[in-house]
Structure formats: structure tokens, C-alpha cells
């Protein structure tokens, strides 16, 4: 079973809670997805005043573990402050750390990310950093104290799937024992299945479900894809090759004259 910071998690589908048509649809989608971990973003203005309580309690009451995130933070200081608020609001040491470097691609600022990870890990947080597939950044995040990594598939909300297959495979091969959760960029269930087939431990989905025409149905579709992908990984997929190989062997077959 997948374990994230010593917490066993049965479902390899993590779900984001933003931009659903309503909390009621969110609740149904969570049910359909089987997700046991939900990310919630904290607007700093609401955290300060406890004004988002109503929505947060809806999320808490869904029965899943909450992974608060620092979405929309552009600086180390902002991300650290938001993490502190999140710890207080959700009474958890888990934090999905996002430090955004650029507004159009929402690409992580990996330098700020490593610095913020170091600060938060030292303070006892269990950090889930949203990062690129860069190996060296991954090394630095692990050195900073992270024990789970969340590499992107493609830019947040873009739905482009796994953009850099080479880089992602290298990351998986390089860190066989670190839980790797593909965060961002997944558009359709086949992308999620592909990530699990490659041996990634889980995927985090938000927009692809919340903005679907029927989010509840899409959540169920992702749940199936994730479990199919993981089963395929365990079953050991064949290696692709350049030439055709007949599935029926010729030698030993009956000769018809």
C-alpha cells in the first residue's frame, strides 16, 4: 500500500477541491473518486479571519485527509506564512508546497521551493513540494527534508498530460523508493493511467474533474484509470520494440499441406 509520511493511503488518486460547481457536487465527486486525500487551497485573506470556515468544514466532513496547499504563493515568505495558517486551520503538519515562479505557466520557482521546503521541514512540517521533473532539484528537496515529491506532468490546469516522458522516467528510475505523485497537467484518465503504468505512486487531479461537464462521472473514470494503471505496473508491462513479433509461434505449429 502507498504510504505518505507514514500514513497508509489506499487510493492512488488524490483530488483537489477547487472550482467545482458547488460543494454538493464536490462531495459526490469525492465519493465517486474514492480519494482519501484532498487538497485545499487557502486564500490568505480568508485564513486570517477564519472566514473560509464554512467551506473548509465541508471539506473536513468529507472524511478524507486534508492536504492544504499554498497555491498562488509567489515568494518563500508568503508560502511559509500560508503553511503556518494551514497548520492551524486544519490541524495537520502536511503541506503541499507551491512557490510559483511565473504567472502564465505557473511553473514552480524551484529555488524558492527548496528554500521554503528547508524552512518548513525544519519546523516539523511534512512537505509535499510541487516541483518540475528536474533530478537535481529533486535531490535538493530530499536533502531539505522532503520525503514525498510531486513533479508536474504539465503546467497546472493545462490538461496536456505527461509532457516530458524522458525526464519523468529518469526521475522515477533515480528515486525508486521516494513516493512520487504526479501533480498538475493531467487532462484525461488515460494520462493518469500512463503515469501509474510508469510506476508513479499516485496522481493529483483537480481541474480535469472539477471542470468536466459531469464532474462526478469523470471522478469515477479517473478512479478506474488510476487503478488500471497501477495494476498494469504491478503486472509488468511488455517492452515496446521496433519489429513485429508474431503472437503465435511458428515453430511447432501444425503444417497444413
Amino acid at each position: 500500500m502507498l504510504s505518505l509520511y507514514e500514513v497508509p493511503v489506499r487510493s492512488r488518486l488524490l483530488l483537489g477541491t477547487a472550482r467545482f460547481p458547488s460543494p454538493a457536487v464536490l462531495a459526490e465527486a469525492v465519493q465517486a473518486s474514492g480519494a482519501e486525500v484532498l487538497t485545499v487551497s487557502l486564500r490568505r485573506e480568508s485564513a486570517g479571519e477564519r472566514a473560509g470556515q464554512a467551506f473548509w468544514s465541508i471539506v473536513r466532513e468529507l472524511g478524507a485527509r486534508v492536504l492544504p496547499n499554498t497555491a498562488g504563493c509567489h515568494t518563500v515568505k508568503e508560502a511559509v506564512t500560508t503553511a503556518h495558517m494551514a497548520r492551524e486551520v486544519f490541524a495537520t503538519s502536511w503541506i503541499k508546497l507551491e512557490v510559483i515562479g511565473e504567472e502564465d505557466t505557473l511553473q514552480p520557482d524551484v529555488f524558492g521551493l527548496v528554500e521554503a521546503a528547508r524552512i518548513l521541514c525544519a519546523e516539523g512540517f511534512e512537505v509535499f513540494p510541487y516541483t518540475t521533473e528536474d533530478l537535481i532539484v529533486a535531490e535538493r528537496l530530499l536533502a531539505a527534508g522532503c520525503r514525498v515529491l510531486m513533479p508536474w506532468g504539465a503546467p497546472i490546469g493545462s490538461g496536456m498530460g505527461l509532457n516530458n516522458l524522458f525526464g519523468l522516467k529518469a526521475l522515477r528510475a533515480h528515486f525508486p523508493a521516494v513516493p512520487l505523485v504526479i501533480d498538475a497537467g493531467i487532462g484525461v484518465p488515460s494520462h493518469a493511467a500512463q503515469a501509474l503504468e510508469l510506476g508513479f505512486d499516485a496522481v493529483l487531479i483537480n481541474t480535469a474533474v472539477s471542470q468536466a461537464v459531469d464532474p462526478v462521472r469523470m471522478a469515477a473514470a479517473f478512479a478506474q484509470a488510476v487503478s488500471a494503471g497501477h495494476e498494469a505496473f504491478l503486472a509488468g508491462p511488455m517492452e515496446p520494440r521496433d519489429m513485429a513479433v508474431p503472437s503465435t509461434p511458428v515453430v511447432g505449429s501444425a503444417l497444413l499441406r
Binding site: R43, E45, S46, E49, A51, G52, Q53, A54, W56
Partner: peptide, 11 residues
Amino acid sequence: MIESDAPSRIS
């Protein structure tokens, strides 16, 4: 559209 019930001022 912000999930918040504080009628605070605009950010």
C-alpha cells in the same frame, strides 16, 4: 467568487 463569509474590503 471567494469561499469566505467575511464582508471585508476588496483585496
